[in-house]
Design a protein around this nucleic acid. Structure first.
Length: 258
DNA sequence: GTGAATGTTCATTC
DNA sequence: GGAATGAACATTCA
C-alpha cells in the first residue's frame, strides 16, 4: 500500500496528533521491526521527549526528536502504516503513548521498519541515495531524470534512485493516463510524452495526496486492475496484465500502444 | 500446496 | 558499467 500519498497521510497523522506532545511510553511489541537500534536505546532517546515536525522524502518519513539531534526514520514496506488512537491490533509493532492518545506503527509483513538516526549526517544519508521527490518534480526535472536512460519507462519510474515516491500502482496509473506503454524505453520518449507524463503524474499525486491514499475509484486504472482482467475506464478495452521489471503490471492495449 | 502481493536490496547474468 | 532478472526478507490471502 504505502506509496508517496500514503506516507504523506502518515505524516499528517503524526503532525496533527503527536507533534509537540510528550512521549510517555514506547512499547516495542515486536523488536523484529527495529533496524540497527535496540529497544532500550530507542526508549532512552524518546521517552520524555517530543517529536518535532516530521518530513517526507519519497516513501521515507523522518521524525526529528526535539531537543536532540536524533530522528526516527520510518519506512513502511508494502504493508506498514501509522494509526492514531486505535484499538490494539495484532500487527502493531511499536506503540508510542502520549498524554492524548497512542500512535501505532503497524506492519504485517515487517519488510522494513524503524531506524534511529544520530545527527544530521545520518539523516542526510537516507535521502542521499534517492532521486527527487515525485511531488516536487518539475517537468524539466522529470525529463532530466528519465531522458536518455536505456531502460523501460516503468522500471525507471519505480526506481527510487530515479524518482522517489512512486510505487507499482501509481506508476501504472500515471503511464495509463499519459498513454504510454510501460515497456517503452525512456530513450524513445519525446517532448510530448514527457509533458503528458509530468502533467498526469502531478495530477494523480495531487488527488491521491489530498486523500492520503491512492483512491480506489473505478475511474482510475487502480480501481479496475484487481478485477483481473478488468476494463479500461476510458475506452472499455479489456486490460492487459503482465510482468514489467519483475512487477505485476496492468495497461490498456488500446490507449497504451507498444 | 502454489503463487502473488502496493517495497527494497543484493547477487547474478547478459 | 548498465540493465534485466531472480532471490531474499515475513506474512497473508486467493
Amino acid at each position: 500500500m504505502p506509496e508517496l500519498p500514503d506516507v504523506e497521510g502518515f505524516r499528517r497523522v503524526l503532525s496533527d496528533h503527536a507533534v509537540g506532545r510528550k512521549i510517555r511510553r514506547v512499547d516495542v511489541l515486536d523488536p523484529g521491526v527495529l533496524r540497527g537500534v535496540g529497544v532500550g536505546t530507542l526508549q532512552q532517546v524518546l521517552v520524555g521527549r517530543r517529536f518535532g515536525q516530521p518530513w517526507r522524502h519519497g516513501k521515507h518519513l523522518v521524525v526529528p526528536v526535539a531537543g536532540s539531534d536524533s530522528a526516527v526514520l520510518l519506512h513502511f514496506g508494502m504493508t506498514g502504516a501509522l494509526h492514531w488512537a486505535c484499538d490494539r491490533h495484532r500487527h502493531d509493532r511499536v506503540v508510542f503513548t502520549f498524554s492524548n492518545g497512542e500512535l501505532a506503527y503497524r506492519d504485517m509483513r515487517k519488510l522494513h521498519g524503524l531506524r534511529l538516526a544520530n545527527g544530521a549526517d545520518d539523516v542526510r544519508r537516507v535521502v542521499a541515495g534517492l532521486g527527487p521527490d515525485a511531488a516536487e518534480l518539475s517537468r524539466a526535472g522529470l525529463r532530466d531524470q528519465l531522458a536518455g536512460l536505456r531502460r523501460q519507462v516503468k522500471p525507471a519510474l519505480v526506481d527510487q534512485a530515479v524518482v522517489a515516491g512512486l510505487g507499482n500502482l501509481l506508476a501504472d496509473e500515471i503511464l495509463w493516463r499519459a498513454y504510454i506503454h510501460p515497456r517503452r524505453s525512456c530513450a524513445d520518449l519525446d517532448t510530448d510524452d514527457f509533458a503528458r507524463l509530468h502533467t498526469r503524474m502531478r495530477n494523480v499525486l495531487r488527488q491521491a495526496v489530498s486523500q492520503g491514499r491512492v483512491p480506489p475509484r473505478t475511474t482510475w486504472l487502480t480501481g479496475r486492475r484487481d478485477e483481473k482482467p478488468g476494463s479500461c475506464p476510458r475506452c472499455g478495452t479489456t486490460l492487459n496484465h503482465g510482468r514489467v521489471g519483475g512487477r505485476g503490471t496492468a495497461w490498456c492495449p488500446r490507449c497504451q500502444p507498444e
